[in-house]
């Protein structure tokens, strides 16, 4: 199969890659671009470990083709913090011990950021439903939900 040349932007950086027409964006990120912060838990859109944003919209990168990234803006976990500091959400995840093994964490942080950009003041229930596509087997979600609520407070500037 002839590879396709794709021009895209990843975490604000102009990026080019070659990929097979049937290769997923997840595979491209991980295998071609060595951006392994985005994880694969299922490859079928059920676990959210591969969450990235595409033109600001939250997507499962295992359900997006690499070629679809043409001309798009992709955001991954590697782009959440700036060079100096962790993002508030990352700090709050650490402060609340919202991770145990940490395999779900990149996806959850990307999803949480998308949630709080959409809805800066979510209720516990809204958080639980928004993040229902991000599976975590370790924590029972309690501390994740608390970290998200606390992030929202800080990001709104209420604290």
């Amino acid at each position: 199969m002839a590879k396709t040349h794709v021009t895209t932007s990843i975490n604000g950086e102009a990026t080019e890659f070659l990929c097979e027409p049937n290769e997923t964006l997840l595979a491209v990120l991980r295998n071609e671009l060595q951006l392994t912060g985005t994880k694969e838990g299922c490859g079928s859109g059920d676990c959210g470990a591969c969450s990235v944003t595409m033109n600001g919209r939250l997507v499962c990168s295992c359900l997006v083709l690499g070629v679809e990234a043409e001309g798009a803006e992709i955001g991954t976990v590697e782009g959440i913090s700036n060079k100096e500091n962790l993002h508030v959400i990352q700090e709050k995840f650490l402060e609340h011990a919202a991770l145990q093994c940490g395999i779900c964490t990149p996806g959850l942080i990307v999803s949480t950021k998308a949630l709080l950009e959409e809805n800066p003041d979510p209720t516990e229930e809204e958080i639980r439903y928004y993040l229902a596509g991000n599976l975590c087997r370790c924590t029972g979600y309690d501390k994740i939900i608390r970290a998200v609520m606390d992030s929202a407070v800080v990001m709104r500037g209420d604290a």
Partner: peptide
Amino acid sequence: QRTIRPDGFDKVTGRADFGADLS
């Protein structure tokens, strides 16, 4: 105490290398 875990930074930034992350 409720300290910040030492491997935390790598885990929230996507730098931690899991089973499938080594090439």
